[in-house]
Design a protein around this nucleic acid. Structure first.
Lengths: 162, 162
DNA sequence: TGCTTGTTCGCAACTCGTGCAGATTGGGCG
DNA sequence: CGCCCAATCTGCACGAGTTGCGAACAAGCA
């Protein structure tokens, strides 16, 4: 996304107002490579501006996404995460800690894949999943689905499966 | 996933019981290429077995996923969808109607992409997004993000953005 | 400074799932 | 065939994430 200064101008150019809440979020997002969730941003914003509403954070994020200044990424069914990098790129996610990094892939001919008949593909998202160096070193388990063993009711009670 | 008959045997072999609810779900999932959500399955199941609990549907789906007989797919932040096809494959999703189809991609060297340093990638998910033939013909809009135009408060009120 | 219109707030409501506990039932056994 | 007990089912409450709504508030322009 563009710099806080540029965004300020862009917002005003569209008849949108420049509030301190928005400016704070512009700053928190600019050059932020952590792919924060809305809640993470709310927490961070609250530290600098106690009293800011969670609602305002969601609102501003949605506005930025609608303006094309921010990308919303859906990893799994949990909370959405936001990426100020709107270039054409993809992601790796650590299944243990949730850390996420940008990945550049040359996928020019992917869309020639089998089964796309009739679809006019407008975007392609690739998500690599695995464990980051830190989690691997610490031996943090990937939350698997190691199947059968864990499903036997005689081994563990239902609630342990979660 | 395996046929209802095979699943029946597999469940019993693990000390799991064979209830009519489970058998119904086995049948609804087997050879089902629609990638249904838990709720869609609940609706369909309710038609054949009024009174079946939503909870039971979720439970059974989770069990099948844990057994590796079913794949859970997360497209966006909405509801999870389920795929009885557990082969190595990817998906196309229609951004207008949500229709989803399996896609086979040769992604052998994708993991050699830039930026994966340190991660040991265990899985790769590719999602193509676009509009299916039907939605294109009917002119159904893709829910874009066509940016600026739709965000101007003078053009539409805030609540219309949703 | 005053006005108009966009924003912020905060709470209620909604969606997708899961935890819990009591009522049921599958299925091995006598 | 009938018993018995663990595995299931059901229904409801609860939790996370996010949006709807309306009253109070504040940018930005005249």
């Amino acid at each position: 996304m563009r710099s806080p200064t540029d965004l300020t101008a862009a917002f005003r150019a569209h008849g949108l107002k420049l509030t301190p809440q928005r400016q704070l979020l512009f700053r928190m997002l600019y050059d932020n490579a952590t792919h924060p969730s809305a809640d993470a941003l709310f927490m961070a914003a609250s530290a600098e501006m106690p009293g800011i509403s969670r609602r305002t954070v969601y609102q501003t994020l949605n506005d930025l996404v609608a303006m094309g200044e921010l990308r919303q990424i859906a990893i799994g069914t949990g909370s959405a995460r936001f990426d100020p990098n709107v270039d054409d790129h993809h992601h790796v996610v650590c299944t243990a800690c949730g850390e996420m990094r940008d990945v550049y892939v040359d996928d020019v001919d992917l869309a020639g894949a089998a089964g796309l008949d009739g679809f006019d593909v407008t975007s392609t998202d690739i998500v690599f999943r695995g464990r980051c160096t830190r989690c691997r070193r610490r031996g943090r388990p990937s939350p698997s689905t190691s199947a059968l063993a864990s499903i036997s009711p005689s081994a563990t009670t239902r609630k342990d499966q979660s």
